[in-house]
Design a protein around this nucleic acid. Structure first.
Lengths: 200, 200
DNA sequence: ATGAATTGACTTTTGAGTAACTTACCTAGA
DNA sequence: TCTAGGTAAGTTACTCAAAAGTCAATTCAT
């Protein structure tokens, strides 16, 4: 256990390991409830190494959120860039999100963590990623609303928020039913979205 | 400031004040990110008084969640007890939830806090309230799903979560646009719910 | 043999929880 | 109506544990 000295693991690989463990922990329990020591233990290394590579806890979180946000935003962007009607895009966006999230469903909650300290690098990074995702969502939402006959910017802002929140809810439900595949989640989401409108 | 001795505020009222402040803080930042000291400061009293009334931090959270859960469950129950078809109930439930959540939108986040320590009174109380609300919502949701051709209990559970989460998002949006009336919000919600299904 | 990887053993800060004291209110008896 | 004393409300000043962050020493790969 207590062996000192290098183990021959290059920094890049070790950083990836740490980010994997930390993202999972942050997403499960939230920023405040995660200790650097527990992350280090889970990764099989010592606390100072984490600090050596990522500086502060804030820095570690920021790194997690930037990587996660990059993966998510990229997948969504790819869908939006493709041609197609609104119906297709909604479904493809859902599929993209669930597919990216499938191996690490906690990524989403990391980005939308509410327990961050209001100041600092972590909060800034999270806000940036959220803004990017909200911006992407708004583009898709605008189309759908136009089809429904509304061009009201208030409608657009509200629906964007509802949409993001609905995805969050689906992801959290998924976390408690990990046996579901991404494809099952897409199919289920389609049914649920359709049902939401029956009462109206 | 540092005046010692009683200020003549009876225990019941002080407890209510503390619960108000604590529920808001827990709902905003999550269990782990809230300190007893900050709650006490915000309530204008000292830390030991909070401990004297609620024991541990776990006990304080449990008290918050029980009160919050009671308020929510009661309002929903009242709507469900009234006769009417699915469409009417959806709309009435929306109206009821908006009304209950308006003065304290963070109540929902408190009940569904993910940063709770897995063991202890707080987690138990939260689970109990979640189960109660989920059970109520599921009754309403089951009807709508039946109309859409699904009797899958997993669908029901997931939709319940999505639905309440969507409503919460609407409430949070509403707080940032207070010029909107409750009736406008109900109408807007109807449009948004309908639009959500365009893709399917 | 140089530098990157890595840790043990610190210091410091923060926050939960407690002990012991102080003050105000309220009622029973004179 | 006045006062003695019990009880409820409240604080200051601590203890203790956990967790953030630092430093200097150590080992391995090239």
């Amino acid at each position: 256990m207590g062996e000192v000295g290098t183990k021959g693991v290059p920094r890049a690989e070790r950083e990836r390991q740490i980010l994997d463990v930390a993202t999972d922990a942050f997403g499960r329990k939230g920023y405040a409830a995660v200790s650097i020591a527990s992350v280090a233990a889970e990764a099989g290394i010592s606390k100072p190494l984490v600090h050596g590579y990522f500086g502060t806890k804030d820095g570690l979180f920021a790194a997690c959120v930037r990587r996660a946000g990059g993966q998510l935003a990229e997948a969504i962007e790819e869908v939006l860039a493709r041609p197609g009607d609104t119906a297709a895009k909604v479904e493809q966006t859902l599929r993209a999100v669930f597919t990216v999230l499938e191996p690490r469903p906690y990524v989403w909650n990391t980005v939308f963590d509410r327990t961050l300290p209001p100041e600092g690098e972590a909060a800034e990074a999270a806000l940036a990623v959220r803004a990017r995702i909200a911006d992407q969502a708004e583009r898709g939402v605008a189309e759908a609303l136009a089809a429904a006959g509304s061009a009201d910017p208030l409608d657009r802002a509200a629906l964007t928020e509802v949409w993001v929140s609905a995805v969050t809810a689906l992801v959290n439900w998924w976390l408690r039913h990990p046996e579901q595949s991404a494809e099952q989640m897409v199919r289920r989401s389609r049914l649920l979205m359709r049902t939401l409108s029956t009462g109206s």
